[in-house]
Design a protein around this nucleic acid. Sequence first.
DNA 1: AACATAACTGACTAATCAGTCAATTATCGA
DNA 2: TCGATAATTGACTGATTAGTCAGTTATGTT
Lengths: 192, 192
Amino acid sequence: MKEQIKDKRKAIMEAALKLFTERGFHGTSTAQISKEAGVATGTLFNYFPTKEDLINSLYFEVKGELSRSMGKEIEVQGIFKDKLKKIWSNLVRWGIENQDEFLFVGQFCSSPYITKFTRDEVMKEYVFLHKLVDEGIREGEIRDFSAELTIAMFYQSSRTVVNFILDSDSSLDENKVLEDGFQIIWRGLADK
Amino acid sequence: MKEQIKDKRKAIMEAALKLFTERGFHGTSTAQISKEAGVATGTLFNYFPTKEDLINSLYFEVKGELSRSMGKEIEVQGIFKDKLKKIWSNLVRWGIENQDEFLFVGQFCSSPYITKFTRDEVMKEYVFLHKLVDEGIREGEIRDFSAELTIAMFYQSSRTVVNFILDSDSSLDENKVLEDGFQIIWRGLADK
DNA sequence: AACATAACTGACTAATCAGTCAATTATCGA
DNA sequence: TCGATAATTGACTGATTAGTCAGTTATGTT
């Protein structure tokens, strides 16, 4: 059953995501994941040959969602700064609305699990952003630093703001931080 | 023997640091750490009652080194931008020169190990930076965003640059990246 | 209904885990 | 040199680990 398959598989991934962010990768056993997902231990290994396979599948899946969210509602004809701001806001909002996924990505990226291969593989999903940055540099919208450095600073600034919002108490004005955060990175990169 | 004690303790911490960055926290067993350090398994538990204790001690130790490096060679009478640049360069250089420590901190901070208490505790070591930022805002050197957000963006930008340098091939002009990186964060924060 | 196939189960295993502790060794002052 | 104390050892334990597999159940086709 196509439906059934998807259900169990999804249940396992959701359980894993939740537990990984709660207890870390090695801190979570496959038995715990199976239990949380409501399946037998054997079932987990039907879908993912090894635990490492599960972690990597989860990472690719989550990164896919992130990069899809990132590109949403971009006006192709809009001005450069607005496009960049939309992408940046998309990144931040995704992080706030998908805490577990956000934390999981952070954990994975600073863990020894990630290889240069995986990093490069994921970078392919950012072609869109890369092109935009190249365009921005060519058109004199942003300064002529290395595109890779520019992207890294841009992306990490969004993560910093998400972490800042997640860590702070709820009295914080989220929209203010979002505005301020973008201003900082925009003024840093903009050529004017 | 004071010397002996320090030696074994230090050997354990160094071994742990190395293996943690190679294989993660749970991916490294206390037996492996003991072996790498050249001591018996029991000895490890003389110095650190539990594995978690070892991880936390290591974190505080490393963070201490970092915050000490951060403040080095700051000219008290210098102009604000130079002081900030010196701190930023110190952070980046420390990361490049202490890769294992740098990666360990990153791993710890994005792991479920870290509690709000630990984060706050470590923040106390940044009083110096906090004061400087407050001063910068008061004197109109940098813009009036929340000091916490400013510090987070400042600190994370240095980490981004270190990661960028560590990930790239050796042909990269390190000093250029260092200059560019600081320019980005400075222009982002500066009030002019 | 009858069959084939795919999905699922959970008891099981060999390996490994963090942590213990009784025995041993090194270091010290007197 | 002796006796006390502190540091160190590694075999050991009960719990837990990732992963297996023979058997069971559910599903789709004819």
